[in-house]
């Protein structure tokens, strides 16, 4: 098997699921670093250079809210799902389950 091709396809496959994973993880308030750790702990490694801009984009789209707070002697930006984000997460979860079920039948 062509490892390089597999890696490209694997990244493509994962790319679409990252938004869903981030939204799901932010039902609980977190800041960037702990969010990344939580995702990694569940087997979804994501680069910081991808995660942080994604958080800002999702906030810009009204799906997240954020606030700066001091924790461990340093100001950190905490993110959490907005009401719009919760509705989006519910809709995307339903869509994901549909896709997953279809794929399960095919695979």
């Amino acid at each position: 098997m062509d490892r390089e091709l597999f890696e490209t396809m694997r990244l493509e496959l994962r790319r679409g699921t990252l938004v869903l994973a981030v939204l799901a993880c932010l039902r609980t308030e977190r800041y960037g670093y702990t969010l990344r750790q939580a995702l990694a702990a569940d087997g979804l490694e994501i680069e910081e250079s991808t995660l942080y801009p994604l958080l800002r984009r999702l906030e810009g789209q009204g799906l997240l809210t954020s606030e700066w707070r001091e924790e461990e002697k340093r100001k950190k930006r905490f993110y959490v799902l907005s009401p719009g984000g919760e509705a989006m997460l519910a809709a995307l979860t339903e869509e994901w389950r549909g896709i997953n079920a279809s794929l399960e039948r095919l695979l």
Binding site: Y31, Y33, E48, Y52, W68, R74, K75, K76, R77
Partner: peptide
């Protein structure tokens, strides 16, 4: 307009790591 905000967040990320 976003510079300060983004840099502060990146600084926190780097220092955390």
């Amino acid at each position: 307009e976003d510079r300060e905000d983004i840099v502060a967040e990146l600084r926190d990320l780097i220092l955390s790591r």
